[in-house]
């Protein structure tokens, strides 16, 4: 009997606690879902080609979407700060993808320069692209597309050993050793 009352009371307490916890969790999940929806809408707008302003402290997914938007339009100077923000948020897969996309954009423009024999800006862009691919691979060593494109960028630079050796990262003797086995010239280059 007393047990019965106690059981009734504990059921009542359980119900009330369950209700309170569930309400709190429901509110939290709803807020998160609404925020996610907002971010998704902005990402979709950027993917559709509309330029949406993005706060510097936005979610990394949104920063990445804006970076991809800027990169496909060759606005690398605006994309670089976003890249640094994404790398600082500590989302390695996303940061690797961002390094990769930005490097792809630079390499595409560099190849365009090379096809029109405009070598100096191309070399700078290829060097930046190589650095980006390296950073992407350090974050994600199994990133095969980055390996492939880094290989493409490496062979581009082999065609300009005298320019490359002026850089500070490769000592001249290392560069000389590197270029002796240059087997051929890729298509479309001087």
């Amino acid at each position: 009997m007393r047990l019965g009352i106690r059981r009734g009371r504990s059921a009542l307490c359980t119900g009330a606690i369950l209700l309170a916890i569930s309400l709190c969790a429901g509110v939290a999940f709803s807020v998160r879902l609404i925020l996610d929806r907002g971010v998704d809408a902005a990402i979709a707008a950027l993917a559709a080609g509309r330029d949406v302003p993005v706060a510097t402290d936005a979610r990394p997914e949104l920063l990445f979407a804006r970076l991809a938007f800027l990169t496909t339009r060759d606005r690398f100077d605006e994309a670089q700060p976003l890249m640094n923000r994404i790398a600082a948020t500590g989302a390695p897969r996303l940061a690797a993808a961002a390094f990769y996309d930005l490097s792809n954009g630079r390499l595409r423009v560099a190849i365009g320069h090379l096809e029109s024999n405009d070598i100096d800006p191309a070399v700078l862009l290829v060097r930046l692209a190589k650095e980006g691919y390296r950073r992407a691979l350090m974050l994600d060593p199994g990133f095969w597309d980055a390996k492939y494109n880094l290989d493409v960028a490496m062979r581009l630079v082999r065609d300009f050993p005298q320019i490359e050796t002026s850089g500070e990262e490769i000592p001249p003797e290392a560069a000389k050793r590197l270029w002796t086995d240059l087997p051929g010239v890729p298509r479309g280059l001087p």
């Binding site: 971010v39 998704d40 993917a47 979610r59 990445f64 991809a68 792809n104 597309d145 492939y148 493409v152």
Partner: peptide
């Protein structure tokens, strides 16, 4: 195909 790059990674929704 010498200069063909692997494609970009498209941004995905959250």
């Amino acid at each position: 195909t010498t200069m063909a790059l692997r494609p970009d990674i498209a941004p995905r929704p959250v």
